[in-house]
Nucleic acid binder design. Structure first.
Lengths: 172, 172
DNA sequence: ATGAAAATCACTCGAAAGTATGAGGGCAAA
DNA sequence: TTTGCCCTCATACTTTCGAGTGATTTTCAT
């Protein structure tokens, strides 16, 4: 966002200044060129006494108008475009109140639903026995879950598992 | 920031060089154009004498030539710098809000410095043995600490202690 | 300097946690 | 249908944890 603003500050005036400068340049150059042309023609007229004044002015006007038309056309058609695409890639390592499971890390870990369930209860301080009661399964089942859990998470203790899980955003 | 610098590096010297180039170019082009025009006029003049109704053609030619000139000029002068900058900005949302111990809860709990130290290591997943090694004391000492810790915190397990401590802001 | 709290350490014992292994049923993909 | 993973449960064994008790030393404030 800030970059865009800064770009606007710097580039747009720069561009318009340049345009203005060139427009003036064109006018100046053209004006003087035409004046020169007229003088030239005048000089030639004196030399050859052929030309009609009105015709030269007419032709000059035509030339001027059509040159202007050409420039206008070109300006309309070829528009200088400076395009800046800023892709803001936000990486949230956030652990604020609204908890959302870190899918990426969860997939990487390869935990099953049940194992995550056990992990959550573990993090809340429940013992294996309490978890077993809560989930209506045997203590041995919970032991199996915890074992596989530790293996998958590459930890040795429940406290480590909880710490790692919290750090990776697997649990609140 | 880098983007702006890069722009400065590329565009500014480019711009001045171009300006200088065009200043000369304009003079050169105009000079030759006018010369050509004069020759054209001279040539057409001869034709004009012969073909009466060639005036329209003459004017048309003039218009065409100057329109082309205008377009050419505009194209040369206003060079479309189509620059596409794709910036990938990575924004890390800070979760490491500098931890500050909740003095109130800490006092209420009545934990000693050493106990808090043990609690912290416990929260990091260390076993009593590892904590003992880390603090250069015996395992029994750590056991004593943890026992008193649990008593003071009114919990039964280390996981509970960690959970409660985190919840109360005693540890990060 | 004196007493209270803290820190240190030890020993026992039971509870909880964790390891290893095997096994049966369910379910979905190959 | 086979294969692989998940969930379940069991048994046996080891390790760690936690409770309880008691003791010595250090630290610190009154």
């Amino acid at each position: 966002m800030e970059i865009l603003n800064e770009k606007a500050k710097i580039n747009l005036p720069d561009m318009s200044t340049r345009n203005f400068f060139f427009k003036n340049k064109i006018i100046l150059v053209y004006g003087s060129s035409l004046a020169l042309l007229l003088f030239l023609l005048k000089w030639l007229e004196l030399r050859f006494v052929i030309f009609d004044h009105a015709l030269e002015v007419y032709i000059g006007a035509i030339a001027l108008v059509f040159t202007g038309l050409g420039i206008w056309l070109a300006l309309k058609l070829i528009k200088p475009t400076i395009k800046t695409i800023i892709v803001e890639k936000e990486i949230y390592v956030n652990n604020s109140i609204p908890f959302s499971l870190n899918e990426k890390e969860f997939d990487k870990m390869g935990l099953s639903k049940r194992e995550l369930e056990v992990l959550n209860l573990m993090a809340e301080g429940y013992s294996n026995g309490e978890i077993a009661t809560r989930l209506f399964v045997s203590l041995n089942t919970i032991k199996t879950h915890t074992s596989k859990l530790f293996e998958k998470m590459d930890v040795k203790r429940r406290t480590q598992a909880v710490e790692k899980a919290k750090r990776l955003g697997l649990i609140p």
